[in-house]
Computed example of a mutant assay.
Amino acid sequence: MATPQHYIWAGGHFVLLISALRYILAWVTFKAASSWWYKASYTGALISYAIVCQKSLGAPQPNAAWARRALADENVQYFILAFFWWTSKPIALTLLPYTIFSLFHALTFTRTTLMPQFLPQGPPATAGGAPTPPQLAKKLQVWVKANYDPAMKVVAYTELLILARVVLGALALSNSFLTPIIYAHFVRMRYFQSVFTKDAVHRAAYSVDRYVSKPETHPTVKQVWTTVQGLIGRWTGATLPAPGAGAAPAPAAGAAR
C-alpha cells in the first residue's frame, strides 16, 4: 500500500514531467515560454528528491560524517543541482535529464500503484494463486526495462552538452562564470558514480581525438586539444584509456544511474 509520502513523491515527478514538457516544447518550436513552467518543473524536482534524500539519509545531522555521506549520494547531488537551476536564469536543456528520470519514475508509479487500482487484474498464474498484474502493466514493465539503459545514455550525453552550453554561455556572458564551475564538479561526480557518464566522457574524447588527429588539422588545434586532454585527466583524476578500451558495460535496467 502506497503511503501519502509516496504519492507526494510521485506527484512531484508528474509536476516536473508535465511542466518540463510544456517548457521544452515551446523551446524547440521557438515559441516564448513562461519561466513559470521552468520554475514549476524544478519545484516538482525539489519535492521528489527531498523525499528520496530524507528516506535514504534520515534527518540531517550536524556532523561531518553525515555531510560527507549526503554529498556522496547522487540524489542529494541532483537535489542541490535542481535548487541551483531553480534559482538561476532558465536554460531549457537542463530540464532534459530530470524529465527523463521523471518519465521512468512516473511510468513505474503508474504501473505498480495506479493501474492495480483502476484496471482489472489478470487470472492467477497457478490455481489458488494471487491474481496477475493487468496486461497493460506487463507491457509497460517490458517497455521500461527495454528503454532504461538507452535513456540513461541519453542523459549522460545531455549532461555533457549542458556542460558545453554553460561554458560557452559564460564566455558569451549569458550565464554566470560560477555556473560551469559548479556544473563541472557535478559532472565529475557523475563520472565516478555512473558508468553511463564515464562511457560518454570517453566516447566524446575519442570522437574529438579522431577529428584532431587528421593530418590536415592545424597544429594549434592539436596543441589546444592536448592541453584539454591533460585538463580532463587532472579533472577526473584518471587517465583516459585507449580508444576501444573505454566503453564500460552498461548496468542492468533499474541499477543506479
Rank of each mutant, 00 (worst) to 15 (best):
A82P: 11
A82C: 09
F83Q: 10
F84P: 05
W85P: 00
W85A: 08
W85T: 02
W85F: 15
W85R: 04
W86E: 08
W86A: 13
W86H: 14
T87K: 15
S88R: 08
K89V: 10
K89Y: 09
K89H: 13
P90S: 05
P90K: 03
I91R: 11
I91L: 15
A92C: 09
A92E: 07
A92R: 02
A92Y: 03
L93G: 00
L93Y: 06
L93V: 04
T94N: 04
L95F: 01
L95Y: 01
L96F: 08
L96G: 01
Y98I: 08
Y98P: 14
T99G: 12
T99C: 11
I100Q: 09
I100C: 04
I100Y: 07
I100D: 01
I100M: 11
F101G: 06
F101W: 12
F101K: 11
S102C: 12
L103V: 12
L103R: 03
F104I: 09
F104G: 08
H105M: 04
H105T: 05
A106N: 12
A106G: 08
L107W: 05
L107Q: 07
L107K: 00
T108Q: 14
T108A: 15
T108Y: 08
T108V: 12
F109L: 03
F109M: 06
F109P: 10
F109Q: 09
T110H: 00
R111S: 06
R111Y: 07
T112E: 12
T112W: 07
T113P: 03
T113V: 11
L114D: 00
M115Y: 07
P116D: 00
P116V: 02
Q117I: 00
F118L: 13
L119V: 10
L119K: 04
L119Q: 07
P120C: 06
P120H: 03
P120Y: 02
P120A: 09
Q121L: 10
Q121N: 08
G122F: 02
G122K: 00
G122M: 03
G122A: 08
G122D: 12
P123E: 11
P123M: 00
P123G: 12
P123A: 13
P124K: 03
P124D: 01
P124G: 04
P124Q: 03
P124R: 03
A125Y: 02
A125S: 14
A125N: 10
T126L: 14
T126R: 15
T126V: 14
A127R: 12
G128E: 02
G128R: 07
G129N: 01
G129T: 03
G129K: 10
G129M: 06
A130L: 04
P131R: 05
P131C: 03
P131V: 02
P131D: 01
T132C: 02
P133Q: 02
P133W: 01
P134C: 05
P134L: 03
P134R: 08
Q135F: 09
Q135C: 02
L136P: 00
L136Q: 12
A137C: 02
K138M: 12
K139V: 07
L140T: 10
Q141N: 14
Q141Y: 04
Q141D: 15
V142F: 14
W143K: 12
W143M: 14
V144A: 13
V144Q: 15
K145C: 07
K145Y: 11
A146M: 11
N147I: 02
N147H: 14
Y148T: 11
Y148M: 13
D149E: 13
P150Y: 10
